[in-house]
Design a protein around this nucleic acid. Structure first.
Length: 506
DNA sequence: TTTTGAGTTGTTCGA
DNA sequence: GTCGAACAACTCAAA
């Protein structure tokens, strides 16, 4: 009888798991579920304690669910290639199956692991799972990868309606056989905790795991947040987003499950083309449409990083390699970066967002844009500093989406807005946190500051500062830079590059 | 090859 | 406060 190893990576679930179901099918249920704690990744510079903790949560639940079905999760630690070959030798497995990962680091690792396994005579099979359409599946008429979102989205939706339905259809969880009792000593005796791995988690984190991911997906739909998504998602004080990003990051839920949920909402609101659609339903349709767009953005950035791996460490638009970052004074730059990181810039919307990140390992997407714009356009600091800090903090930190988002904000990426369109932090604050609820939630020192001063506390007269118990300079900082001045300098630097270089990306 | 339409998420100014 | 226009010029993708 054939035995197949399923190597779990970013697919920590049993339902709608492509490689796992294929393994169960090909092996008649005789699947060895395994996860490898990769020492190289755990020692990497871009790792976040919060993300490790969340991942371990997912693994713990995966193991518990497998045990309810008579199986269990074998957890190994070390180099995946070495550990998997050893597991093959011990168990007599003939094949290793896994779901494909498209980030540069994962591609290098998977090439090494595949080669090692094949040299040992093991059959290796890989599957599409973490996206609905893979990087190579959508090409322009010229056969080139898409570099602009809107045509990409159009092609994505077209492909779906022209025979791609199956790609978006979730599949059921497989039936797995019990592992032989004689294998009881294989793998770690217990899943380590984050602190046992050397990570100190200070945040209150969402509970990881497949069931929690599915519960949140249902809640997102049933609470009406999905339908209201287009109208509410931009306000960080509102629970208007799905909060599913960590679950998608680790595959506790699949993009197909998300897409199916969004589509079911559309079909329920619009059972037929001919039904009368009042204005309220149009809003609901916009909600699901906007959320589907975000799922497509996730795949857009995955394929950008796949096709343009230089963007992983450098500017997607290489002509900006000559761009000057920083003030020219490294000490000042360090002070400014630390103020940004710690939420002490004197711009409340920025500071509230940075404290939300530090305290929860997550940040609202509108806030991510604001703080990224602030770091790159107001502090004139290299986007890579912000990108790395996000990766070291975010529970949902995904290399492709994080890189894409930062380069977009910095103006060095795809679909960059014209360089003179620079976020004004005060305007963003007034527009997207009009009641100041988000600011007050994360900046207790501003709790009693009247709303008319909340978006710019340094404008408070001395008397008001005294009345609200918030003295500028001691309780809360004055702005560390002048937005109007920094904006002009940023525009100057970018326009210089634009004059010099003929744009090219490749 | 040429043409055409469009481009996530904005800001500022002046009426 | 609200609204429309200007901001500059280029690339991408498809016809």
């Amino acid at each position: 009888m054939t035995i197949v190893i399923h190597w779990f990576r970013r697919d920590l679930r049993l339902q709608d798991n492509t490689a796992l179901s294929a393994a169960a099918r090909d092996a008649g249920g005789a699947v060895i579920p395994v996860f490898v704690l990769d020492n190289d990744l755990l020692r990497g510079a871009d790792i976040a304690p919060a993300r490790v903790h969340f991942m371990l949560d997912c693994l713990r639940e995966l193991d518990a669910t497998l045990r309810r079905h008579g199986s269990r999760l074998i957890v190994l630690r070390g180099n995946p290639a070495v550990e998997l070959v050893r597991l093959v030798q011990r168990t007599g497995a003939e094949a290793v199956y896994f779901n494909r990962d498209y980030t540069p680091t994962a591609l290098r690792r998977d090439a090494r692991v595949t080669q090692t396994l094949q040299q040992a005579g093991v059959d290796v099979q890989t599957f599409k799972d973490s996206v609905i359409f893979e990087p190579s599946e959508l090409r322009t008429g010229d056969g080139q990868p898409y570099t602009v979102f809107t045509p990409y989205k159009r092609a994505w939706l077209n492909r779906l309606s022209l025979g791609g339905r199956a790609d978006a259809q979730p599949i059921d969880a497989p039936r797995l056989s019990a592992l032989p009792p004689s294998w009881a000593d294989i793998g770690l005796s217990a899943l380590p905790t984050a602190s046992e791995l050397g990570f100190h988690v200070e945040q209150e984190l969402p509970a990881g795991g497949e069931s929690e991911g599915l519960r949140r997906l249902s809640h997102f739909k049933n609470s009406g947040a999905l339908q209201a998504y287009a109208a509410q998602r931009d306000f960080p004080a509102i629970e208007g987003t799905s909060r599913l990003s960590p679950y998608l990051r680790f595959g506790a839920i699949s993009p197909r499950q998300c897409f199916a949920t969004a589509v079911s909402t559309l079909q329920r609101e619009f059972p037929s083309k001919h039904s009368f659609s009042p204005a309220a339903s149009d809003t609901k349709k916009e909600g699901a449409d906007a959320w589907i767009s975000e799922l497509i953005w996730r795949e857009f950035y995955a394929q950008i990083l796949y096709h343009f791996p230089h963007a992983n460490t450098g500017n997607y638009r290489r002509e900006y390699d000559g761009l000057e970052w920083g003030s020219g004074n490294p000490t000042l730059d360090e002070i400014r970066f630390n103020a940004w990181r710690d939420g002490r810039t004197g711009y409340p919307i920025v500071d509230a967002a940075m404290r939300q990140l530090r305290q929860t390992g997550w940040m609202h997407n509108r806030a991510r844009m604001i703080v990224a714009s602030f770091l790159t356009k107001d502090l004139l600091l290299d986007w890579r500093l912000g990108e790395r800090h996000f990766m070291q903090q975010l529970v949902d930190g995904d290399p492709a989406s994080n890189n894409g988002g930062w380069q977009w904000a910095a103006g060095t990426g795809t679909d960059a807005q014209p360089y003179f369109r620079i976020f004004n932090p005060r305007l963003q604050s007034e527009r997207f946190d009009p009641e100041g609820a988000f600011i007050r939630r994360w900046l207790p020192e501003l709790e009693r500051v009247p709303l008319e001063y909340l978006h710019a506390p340094h404008t408070m007269p001395a008397l008001v500062q005294a009345q609200s118990g918030c003295t500028i300079g001691s309780d809360y900082p004055a702005p560390i830079v002048d937005h109007a001045v920094q904006k002009e300098e940023s525009i100057r630097r970018f326009s210089e590059i634009a004059k010099k270089a003929k744009p090219s990306t490749r």
